[in-house]
Structures are given as structure tokens and as C-alpha cells.
Simulated assay, not measured.
Amino acid sequence: MASKRTAEQLADVLFPEALEQEDFADGVLSIPPEQRKLHTETYDFTVETIVEKLIDGSIFIPKFQRRYVWSDAQASRLIESLIIQCPIPVIYLNQESDEKLSVIDGNQRLTTMRKYFSNEFPLKGLTAYPELDGSRFFELDPRFQRHIQNRTLRCIVILKDTHPQVKFDVFERLNSGATKLTPQELRHGLYFGDLMSLATKAVKESNFLTALEIKNDKRMKAEELVLRFWALSENHANYKKPLAT
């Protein structure tokens, strides 16, 4: 029995992501079956409409998303894909309580479109239309401009009446970037508000990081520990696994 427990502990160390995924699944199973359904709506927005919504804030990039990392060559390839009618992967959005839409998956693509419409970079390294190399949006022939603006992108919106734990599970499933988001980074994006802000303030204004000997806490581990303390000290009697939820 002891050897089995040791093997399980070793597996936890070697495969922590698998353990976290099980926690997310357990969290969904903890809610009533009728509430486990994902409520979505599908929209085909034009590129022009999406850019307008990004500018006016009705679609926004939440704080938990990684920063914009695409090079001009990568960004140019997306714009060229729009020109040649190449299919663009689905964009996933989350409906907030105020009806605004936060980006779950598609940050790099949407930011690229906004930046190009704002003339922030010239096209470079094009393979299908090298004649357009060096062109910013305002320098394109108006017919090219309208063609790009009128392209439609499939957007799937996760509606606000979806159970929060189901949303959390979906975020984890879509969290497939090169650097996976931690559970706390997902929480920070999903439930950002006064409580999350207070946890961040508590960490910054206390000696917490020094006490834990944490020199760099970019992944929000300290905030997660603060939230765990508050949650368990407030309502420990009703605690149910998994802790990730």
C-alpha cells in the first residue's frame, strides 16, 4: 500500500497538469446535471464590426490574457489570409454581466486586426500577394480595404447564464497556448472584481511575498493563496473538493 501511495505521489509531481484537469472535471460534476450545459450563441461578425467593437470596448481583451506577441510577419500572414479568403479559426468570447464580450481565445488575431486597421504596421513577407508588401491599411487600394473589412469571422459567445464552473472548465479546455494559464489566472479573468482587486492589494501592501520567499510572482500564486485563506476561514465547514473550484 505504501508503494502505491508513493507511486501516486510521484505521478502528481511528474504530471501536475493532468491533476489540475481532473480537478476541473470534478468541479463540473459537483453541480446539478441540468446546470452542466454550455449556453452559447454563434455570430458571424465582419472584420470591420469586430474592430469597431474592440475600439469602443464592447469586445475587450481581459487582463489574464497573455500580451501581444506576434511579429509583423505573423500579423501580415493573417491579413493576407483575410485577403485570399483563407478560413480563420473560430473566435471564442465570454458574455460578461454588463453584456460586454471578453476574449477567451483569439487575442493575437483580434489584436492584429485592430493594429492593422490603425496603421500600426506595414505588411511584410507576403507569399500570395507580394505586391502589397510595405502597405499599411490606409495605403491599400479601397477595394482591398473593403474586401478585408467585409470578411466575416465566426464567433462563439459563451452566454452569461452558463454556470460559472462550466465556464471555468471551458476556459481550461481552450487554454492551449504555449504558456498555459494557471487556475488563478483563469479565475482572475473570469471573476475579476472587488475581491480579486483586494487580493492583489493585500499581496502588494503586505510582507506576504517576503514571508513566502517568493521573489517573482507573475503567475498570481500569492493571490491564489490569499483567496484560499479567505474562502476556507470564512466557510471551511462547507468545503467540498476540488480546491481548484
Rank of each mutant, 00 (worst) to 15 (best):
M220T: 03
I91T: 01
F144M: 11
P242I: 02
Y92K: 04
D141Q: 10
E41G: 09
S176F: 02
L132A: 09
G134S: 09
I83R: 00
Q35C: 10
K215S: 11
H163Q: 08
E139F: 07
D105Y: 00
R187W: 04
Q9W: 11
Y116V: 01
K221N: 08
S71Q: 10
M220K: 08
D44I: 02
E99F: 09
T40H: 06
Q108N: 06
D141M: 08
Q184I: 02
Y68A: 09
E48D: 14
L93T: 03
L10H: 09
E8C: 03
Y116I: 05
G177E: 08
D133K: 10
P122W: 01
K63N: 10
A2P: 01
E185C: 06
L123F: 02
H163S: 05
K180Y: 03
F137E: 00
Y116F: 13
L153V: 06
E17A: 11
N207H: 14
W70L: 03
Q35V: 02
A11S: 15
F137Q: 01
S58C: 09
L101N: 01
A237G: 08
N107A: 12
F137W: 07
I104Q: 00
D161E: 11
L93A: 06
E131W: 02
E205D: 15
T42K: 08
P16W: 08
G27F: 00
Y191S: 12
K218C: 12
K124T: 13
I104T: 06
G134M: 08
G125E: 13
R66I: 05
G125Q: 08
Q21S: 14
P62D: 04
W70V: 01
R66M: 07
L101T: 02
Y191A: 13
A211E: 15
R5C: 05
F137C: 04
E185N: 01
E22H: 13
N119S: 14
P16F: 08
S135E: 07
Y68G: 02
R66W: 06
D56Y: 03
D161H: 14
W230D: 00
E22I: 15
L54W: 00
